[in-house]
Computed example of a mutant assay.
Amino acid sequence: MMDRLTDPETLRDLARWLEAASLSSIEITQGDTRIVVRVGAGAEVARPQATEITAPIAGHALNAHPLRAASTDVAAGEAAGFVRVGPVLVPALAPRAGHVTGRAAEGALIGFGDTLLSLEAK
């Protein structure tokens, strides 16, 4: 539903309906997404901030387990990425379900606490 509400034509319709009803604004919230439409001020779309999943240990970034393909959607508690230290793979777990929007370069040397990937709410 929120995708439809971010459509420019839908936002213009909402603004026209607000003016016809002598209202100045409307706010619609669903999950982490908030849309505010103000008459005369256009529309503002506030997307949730991406959650950064950090490296639990220093090593080399891996976007997926060597036996699996990297996924763009992860579930809460799922291994969203890995850090390789020699032959050992240390998982970086997703704190919540979401869509992966950015990753460290495959094989890049990263330190403890460095951003391994970014995760946005679905």
Rank of each mutant, 00 (worst) to 15 (best):
L62C: 03
S22T: 01
A105M: 02
G111V: 02
T54Y: 04
A80T: 01
T54F: 04
P95I: 09
A69I: 04
A105D: 03
R47C: 12
E78Q: 10
I35Q: 08
D7N: 08
R38A: 13
R16D: 08
G86T: 10
H60W: 15
W17H: 13
L117V: 05
E27N: 01
G86L: 13
R103T: 01
A104V: 07
A64L: 05
E9S: 04
A64N: 12
A55K: 13
A46D: 13
H65Y: 13
G111R: 02
R16A: 03
A105T: 00
I35E: 00
V90S: 06
W17Y: 09
I53V: 07
G111D: 01
R38G: 13
A76T: 03
R68F: 04
T33W: 12
D7K: 09
D32G: 04
W17A: 14
A15H: 07
L18P: 12
A97E: 10
R103D: 08
L5W: 14
F112L: 06
A75H: 05
A94V: 11
P91H: 01
L116M: 11
S118I: 01
I110G: 07
D7S: 06
F112G: 07
E27T: 04
V39G: 01
H60F: 15
E27Q: 06
A61I: 15
R47I: 14
R103M: 08
R34C: 02
A70V: 05
D7P: 00
R16P: 08
V74N: 07
E78H: 01
I53S: 14
L67W: 09
P87D: 11
A75S: 02
G113T: 07
T29V: 11
R84Y: 00
